[in-house]
């Protein structure tokens, strides 16, 4: 066999091996995204009120992918950014009925239904975003025991993380609600959940 032919064969096999490495890596990356969304825990039962007066319980999480956050309307730091980001996601997924949004106030004393309604008008563009209030002890319990998010020194001490919940009420992942890269990640994970269940 001539030198050149040998080199061509080596080149061909190198490309083939690179192709296999490439396929394997891409497959691993895809798998890791799904694994990254493994079930963390189930949301426990709770009962809060939406700003329109209707009751909202864990059963309302069934058959919907939910993005949840803890906020309060007088908050000037993280909450406006978190809520703007949730509003952005709401717009981007407005064609899908698979998704809903939940924001729970950590300041129920000030955040009356009408205040929450006003807040909703500012950030929400569709009726699939629920702004919930209830007894402060219930809220703390839900945050700490249900979502494993710290809730000390309320109202300001609430977590700035967004929680992704699947249609079987399972918590799948947390995202820093003020970081753009995390929001993109959340968005990609929502697509993964919509496509793969």
């Amino acid at each position: 066999m001539s030198m050149i032919n040998k080199k061509l064969i080596i080149a061909f096999f190198s490309v083939l091996i690179l192709g296999i490495i490439g396929l394997f890596t891409i497959d691993q990356a895809t798998q890791s995204r799904i694994n990254n969304l493994s079930v963390i825990s189930e949301v426990p039962s709770f009962q809060l009120d939406n700003f329109d007066g209707t009751s909202f319980t864990e059963k309302n999480l069934d058959n919907k992918i939910t993005v949840a956050s803890f906020i309060f309307t007088q908050c000037e730091g993280a909450c406006p950014i978190m809520s703007t980001n949730m509003g952005l996601l709401q717009k981007r997924f407005s064609d899908s009925d698979a998704l809903q949004f939940v924001s729970i106030t950590t300041d129920p004393d000030y955040d009356s239904s009408s205040v929450l309604k006003e807040f909703s008008d500012k950030y929400s563009s569709k009726n699939n975003w629920f702004f919930l209030r209830g007894d402060i002890n219930d809220v703390v319990k839900l945050s700490e025991d249900g979502f494993f998010l710290s809730a000390s020194l309320l109202p300001t001490g609430h977590s700035t993380r967004l929680v992704l919940i699947d249609k079987d009420r399972n918590i799948r992942q947390y995202y820093e609600g003020t970081v753009d890269a995390n929001i993109i990640e959340l968005q990609n994970d929502i697509v993964t959940l919509i496509n793969k269940g």
């Binding site: 490495i21 490439g22 891409i26 990356a29 890269a181």
Partner: peptide
């Protein structure tokens, strides 16, 4: 360049934050 391309197509660019 191949490995860099692999980073891009597998979306691993922010793999190390």
């Amino acid at each position: 360049i191949f490995v860099g391309g692999l980073v891009r197509v597998s979306g691993a660019g922010m793999g190390c934050p």
